[in-house]
Nucleic acid binder design. Structure first.
Ligand SMILES: Nc1ncnc2c1ncn2[C@@H]1O[C@H](COP(=O)(O)OP(=O)(O)OP(=O)(O)O)[C@@H](O)[C@H]1O
Length: 699
DNA sequence: CCGCTCGATGTTTTT
DNA sequence: CATCGAGCGG
């Protein structure tokens, strides 16, 4: 009897190859995650490898939790000593331990997007700009630069700084980074950037390499440059690294995910074991075939074959609704009439805001549901307010949370006074609590006393008591009493309190800095507790998960594929991969729904059409019910073959007869060039490669 | 300094 | 629609 008895031959082979590098490149539902988790259990239980020598990384909190749970079950022991987490939490862990080597103390804070945004806004207001962008745009640019390891100093050297726009951007970027540094804080990109720096440190790297001897990465297709480099550095000594992924499920390009990381993996190490899995265990053949009919339209797809011995199952339902409410009521009705356990259902959508109406209509039918993701629990005002005290106590240099704490509840201290305090702090190298001495007013004295009292209190009490003390001493509840949703807010605060109690149960001397860092990386509802509720989430957060019945809501033009993506073939392909992910989450039943009308930014749009991707789908697997005729004429061409995503021209630099080298297929000869793709003959046969992606695959 | 009103503005997706 | 910032009166 081996743990591996429950794997098929190929999976077993992959699981047993413990030493050396390996890659599992396989389609959805073929058991990649299963293989990884079994492999880990096997390594520990049957190979005697120490848990602490294993590092298993993935991309989202949900996936990491899921993986941890599965391993725990298989091993039947806890996974506390094993690092199974997202890249970011792994990074934070290392930075806590070794950050002092690169100028951070271990109580650093993590700034989420809101925090970063407020810094940027402040900077913009202060500077006089001629070429002003939106704060959002600045942040996007900054995080892109960081992924390329271009810090402000590097940027200054890199661009022509006499150009006004460059100069202005540099000023903002520099100021932003200085502000983070002063606050002993990092944003999400910094976590990876500085983690990579640690893995380059001559003294620290060997320690890490010896600690994390066996590295496994799930969803490897979604790693970005920094993550790639971190892994590479850690693995360079023992080279025990297994990565798994599926290029058809790469859906985080907007965040810097680079598909060539997985496509080039075999070049990174000698003697890479490559395993392909082709049997899908998850879905009915109807679902699988439908998904295949979609993804094969992507020119980046390597065209893996996937088959299943599962039953054919029901056809996939397409439902036309007049309004989003009707769409949601239809879903609610199907769930209600099924009489099945609610946890068998998931409702997926492209954008978070779609969840509101669905949640509301489910509730109206008495169906319990849980929305995952979206506005994080920790980004609610009342939670942020209270957290700002904890953070300030932990790190009195934090400017963002200092401002938040001192102004909530209102203390008749405003912008002017705060600016004075900040300036005074900077000038005299004081933290913000010390700097409250800037003037002698009773207001400031009172706040200072409060904070000193709380800091003192925090030294002898646990975090839950500290939170209670903050609520009491600031009279926080009285402050929010007159706001809308007072009761909800109190419940949220209660939940915050309970969650701390919960953590303290398992970790009796939970440190404040550790607590703060942990929750900065979580959105509260990441753990998929097996409650009897219908789960609602974006397709992005559903990656790696599976459900008996999946509803894909808002399967309509403009929304999915998102209208913003239509300009760029790469983005359309990414949207199509997203659809592939959505479809392949379903085990038994799949419903696609869309609405003819939808309100966007306060304006209702009518006569909306089904998603362009519907025309990719093989209609043999579709059961189109409640067909609503469109008042507008359909295109004259045969609808079944009509593809609204007809491509745009592309002047190719490739010529017929030219010899090219493909990253996976090796040497080949160009046969045909058109505006969509080039056709190349390789030893393995003829392949079409998207024209605008050719550079990615051909050297 | 605070809170209110009014007008401008705008969304993918997550850590 | 709903969120955010500017501007104003108390
Ligand atoms: N050899 C097997 N025997 C029985 N069930 C299997 C086997 N391999 C995989 N499965 C089941 O198939 C389902 C999909 O597996 P898993 O989630 O590991 O796939 P995956 O390749 O990671 O999928 P995705 O890429 O979509 O995340 C799971 O329910 C898993 O338990």
């Amino acid at each position: 009897m081996s743990i591996l008895d429950n794997l098929n031959d190929m999976q077993k082979k992959a699981a047993k190859l413990v030493e050396g590098p390996g890659l599992i490149l396989a389609g959805a539902g073929s058991g990649k995650t299963r293989t990884i988790t079994y492999k880990i259990a096997y390594m520990v239980k049957e190979m005697g490898i120490e848990k602490e020598n294993i590092l298993a990384l993935t991309f989202t909190n949900k996936a990491a939790n899921e993986m941890k749970e599965r391993i725990k079950k298989l091993m039947n022991e806890n996974t506390a000593d094993m690092q199974v987490s997202t890249f970011h939490s792994f990074g934070v862990k290392l930075l806590r331990m070794y950050g002092s080597n690169i100028g951070f103390t271990s109580n650093f804070n993590i700034y989420d997007t809101d925090d970063s945004m407020s810094i940027i806004k402040k900077i913009i207001k202060k500077l006089v700009l001629r070429n002003e962008l939106t704060p959002r745009a600045y942040l996007a640019k900054i995080s892109k630069l960081k992924e390329d390891e271009i810090m402000p100093e590097d940027y200054e050297k890199m661009v022509n700084i006499s150009i006004n726009a460059n100069r202005e951007f540099y000023d903002i970027y520099k100021e932003y980074q200085d502000e983070l540094k002063k606050s002993n804080s990092m944003d999400f990109s910094d976590i990876l950037y500085y983690t990579k720096k640690l893995t380059e440190n001559k003294r620290i790297l060997p320690i890490l390499q010896d600690r994390y001897r066996y590295i496994l990465v799930d969803e490897y297709q979604d790693t970005n440059k920094l993550q790639y480099a971190i892994i590479k550095n850690l693995a360079s000594k023992y080279k025990n690294i297994w990565v798994v992924g599926d290029e058809d499920q790469s859906i985080y390009a907007f965040r810097g995910a680079d598909i060539s990381n997985i496509l080039n993996f075999e070049k990174d190490y000698d003697n890479v074991n490559i395993i392909r899995l082709e049997q899908n265990y998850r879905s009915t053949s109807n679902i699988l075939n439908l998904a295949n009919s979609v993804i094969k339209n992507n020119m980046t797809s390597l065209g893996k074959k996937l088959w299943t011995t599962n039953e054919e199952g029901k056809k996939i339902v397409l439902f036309d609704a007049e309004t989003p409410y009707q769409e949601a009521r239809y879903i609610a009705k199907v769930i209600k009439l099924s009489n099945r356990n609610l946890n068998e259902f998931a409702i997926l959508y492209r954008t978070n805001y779609q969840s509101r109406i669905i949640e509301q209509e489910l509730l109206a039918e008495g169906i319990k549901s849980q929305v995952y993701g979206g506005l994080s629990f920790y980004s609610r005002k009342e939670i942020k307010d209270l957290m700002s005290y904890l953070i300030l106590i932990n790190n009195p240099n934090d400017s963002v949370n200092f401002e938040r704490a001192i102004t909530n509840p209102k203390r008749k201290i405003g912008a002017k006074t705060i600016a004075d305090i900040v300036e005074y702090a900077n000038k005299n190298n004081l933290n913000y609590i010390e700097a409250l001495d800037v003037n002698n007013t009773a207001k400031l004295k009172e706040f200072k006393n409060l904070m000193e009292y709380l800091i003192d209190f925090s030294e002898n009490n646990n975090i839950s008591s500290l939170l209670q003390e903050i609520i009491d001493k600031t009279e926080y509840l009285a402050y929010i009493e007159k706001e809308d949703n007072y009761e909800d807010r109190v419940l949220n605060i209660q939940e915050l309190y309970n969650s701390i109690i919960e953590i303290e149960k398992n970790n009796t001397d939970l440190k404040l800095d550790e607590y703060i860092q942990t929750i900065s990386l979580s959105s509260s509802l990441d753990d998929m507790s097996d409650n009897s509720v219908v789960k609602l989430m974006t397709i992005h957060s559903s990656k790696g998960l599976e459900f008996e019945t999946v509803f894909l809501a808002g399967f309509e033009s403009g929304l999915f594929p998102n209208s913003k993506s239509l300009e760029d073939e790469n983005e359309i392909e990414e949207e199509r991969r997203l659809l592939y992910v959505a479809l392949t989450r379903a085990e038994k039943e799949l419903y696609l729904t869309y609405s003819k009308s939808r309100m966007v930014n306060g304006v209702t749009i009518y006569n909306k059409m089904v998603s362009e991707f519907f025309y990719d789908m093989d209609k043999n697997y579709i059961n189109h019910i409640n067909k609503i005729e469109n008042p507008y004429k359909k295109p004259a061409s045969n609808v079944e073959n009509f593809n609204p995503l007809k491509k745009i021209k592309n002047d190719s630099k490739y010529k017929i007869g030219q010899i090219v080298i493909h990253k996976s297929y090796g040497k080949g000869k160009v046969k045909k060039v058109d505006d969509k793709a080039i056709t190349v003959e390789f030893s393995v046969g003829e392949k079409r490669i998207a024209a605008n992606l050719a550079d990615k695959f051909l050297i």
